[in-house]
Design a protein around this nucleic acid. Sequence first.
DNA 1: TCTGGGGTCCTAGGACCC
DNA 2: TCTGGGGTCCTAGGACCC
Length: 440
Amino acid sequence: MSDLVALIDCNNFFTSCETVFQPWLNDSPVVVLSSNDGCIIARSQKAKDCGIPMGAPYHVYKQHIQRHGIKVFSSNFSLYGEFSRRIHHILSQYCEKIEPYSIDEFFFMIPSFHNNKGPSTAHIRRTQETRAYTLASAIQDRIQQWLTIPTSIGIATTKSLAKIANKFAKRNHATTRGIHNLGFSGVSESLLASLAVEELWGISYKSKKKLNNKHIYTALDFYRAPIHLIRSLLSITGERIHHELKGESCLTLNDTHTAKKSIRISRSFGHPVTQKVQVQSALTEFVSQASEKLRAQHSRAHTLYVYIHTNPYQQIPQYMRGKMMHFVEALFDTNILVAHCRTLLEEIFTPGHRYSKAGVILMNLIPITPFQEPLFTMTHQEQSRELMDAVDRINTLYEKDTVFVGSRGTRIKETWSPRNNFRSPRYLTHWKELPIVHAS
DNA sequence: TCTGGGGTCCTAGGACCC
DNA sequence: TCTGGGGTCCTAGGACCC
């Protein structure tokens, strides 16, 4: 007998986080903007009801937003990340196998309450289904009570089916109260028929077009289509989805913490940037942040990629360049990476353009070798490791940015920093705002 | 004036080898 | 100038996710 897997997903997560500290805003529509206050990336239910589409440019909807009295927030990822961490913690009190899928979604296995090796009777299945529901309900209640974040939970035998169950729970909140359990019997044809094929997890615009050309419009059409057709249209990825819908699990739950395979930091500038020294300041900041993340997951990078470009939305001469550098010995030291970053920028920067964005990517990551205490003299690399450890400790213990590479500058940073005109306070993570607790 | 950021996986095709 | 087949590895780009 297979196990049951659940997907918990926070409703309108970013806006929910913002309203935790200003609960009176629950009476108003609320939106959260992307970095640089560019796009609308989260909407409360009331904002959705006002006709604000997902991903819309803020400046286009500004008047519409003002007219409807919609409350606007810049994104505050340290706040959302902290909520995410707490949700993960609550989940871990109920189940062992958890896979964080995104900042607001977690897959988790429903713990088995019986001996898996024994015969699977209808009775055992029913009991397991009932217990799964009870567990989901308890988790949902606790997250609501402790964090006041509303969630939806879908339960099924595969991840793709759990996604469908979750979607159904969310859409029919009045009847499901945010939980839908497909159990061991799988998905009904009527539920599949109610979903457009592009609502399936893993089917997006291009795939939808290909499927529609073969008269596959609904999830049910997809389900009934011959596997060889799906394979020929969407390759192995589509084939997996097909199997998953039939209850054959192809996507396993990964509950081990896996290091990232690449780390990217990129930002759109608050204003167009023309001077090399400004781009240099930005890239210094980005590569510093990226290498900090790199060390936090105990990795080193064999490859650094740097890119810059102009604003593709504007009718101006366009320019985009990127360049890669490989290192025989993988790196983790901010100072060294900053120096290489500079070299790359020298090769790709051309004066005379209005740059709108830049970024760095660390790739080909490998685990850092265990640190060994030196017996006599320290090698250069060991010194570098110690220095980086100290920098990371200071920036963790005190405010972020307490120590930074000088070439980033402070005044110059203001010339490219992204806009965030509507940012809420860092309620949960800003050390200066934490109450001082005296140990007794 | 203003249009995000950070990931993963898969495949086709080139380079190279025997 | 003609001219095979099969394998591996790497990379860029596509597609998708939230």
